[in-house]
Nucleic acid binder design. Structure first.
Lengths: 152, 152
DNA sequence: TCTATTCTCAAGAGAATAGGTTGACAATGC
DNA sequence: GCATTGTCAACCTATTCTCTTGAGAATAGA
């Protein structure tokens, strides 16, 4: 699962992407329209600005904006910035690889082999979608109607 | 990320799958070869047996075995049993759907739309691999050698 | 210069989750 | 009856999550 913080970060970035080129966007504007606790958002935005993907200015008419054009930021990047990796297990990360504790040897680990495949299809998708891309929305109900052959 | 508990559960199930048809396998056998804390494994196995996918017998020559043939258990099933869902956000689960807190409306949520796609490719993969399937192992080093166009 | 506005940043608080362990008990086979 | 093996509830510690507090510092405009 993505943490609440990561989800907030993604929505905040989408908001800034939508308003890219329109000057500084005040935190309150993001917080209110995206339904994010304002003070928590300051923590998130300051984290994002340390990575250079958000810029800011203080004082009257200040605010935040993308430090990089939205076409140059993928959803994969965002998740990596916020949680370090796209993978489901530390040993299946291609960039932030870490050996798992209390595991069998990596070369013998079937879980790792499988999770590497999962990471790759996930990355294939998320690294292909940019903050500037339109995303086809899905009606709320459809998430509940699983096809017959799908369990969850 | 999958929790340590989920990873232990997967490895324990793989172990039982490998020895399917060989009678009860003592907990100690699983714990030692899979490097899982024995007492914690009792918690995990009892959880799995509540779902009927593990059976057990007490006393001398007792132990655990799969309650269902390994060909009938997918990795997707295992992850769903252990953590409730394959999805990265509650609102993108097809079986255990839950609306996210502090979010925008689901029908307007781009994050959800994207995470539904991620869920679907993940499920496409994990629901297609069964505990009885051979899994091609990946040498330990390869996880570290990211292709040029891959970032993490 | 004064003031209102807006970001900055370190600390901390409360709750939940993770990752186990303890210990008493129950069944089974010899 | 005794060793073996699973059952189960309760507990524990550390970490992480999700925010909040509160004291600044920069900026623009009056």
């Amino acid at each position: 699962m993505l943490s609440q913080k990561t989800r907030y970060a993604i929505r905040a970035m989408q908001h800034l992407a939508d308003k890219y080129g329109q000057g500084p966007i005040p935190l309150t504007d993001i917080a209110e329209t995206q339904n994010i606790p304002a003070k928590f958002l300051t923590v998130i935005l300051s984290e994002l600005s340390r990575f250079g993907i958000v810029a800011s200015q203080r004082g009257k008419d200040g605010g935040y904006w993308l430090g990089v054009p939205p076409i140059d930021i993928t959803y994969g990047d965002l998740i990596r910035v916020m949680r370090g990796s796209l993978a489901l297990v530390p040993c299946a990360s291609r960039f932030a690889h870490e050996t798992c504790k209390n595991c069998v040897e990596e070369k013998d680990c079937r879980t790792r082999a499988l999770m590497l495949q999962v990471r790759d299809v996930t990355a294939g998708l998320l690294d292909g979608v940019r903050l500037s891309d339109p995303i086809e929305l899905v009606p709320a109900a459809e998430g509940l109607e699983a096809p017959d052959d799908v369990q969850a």
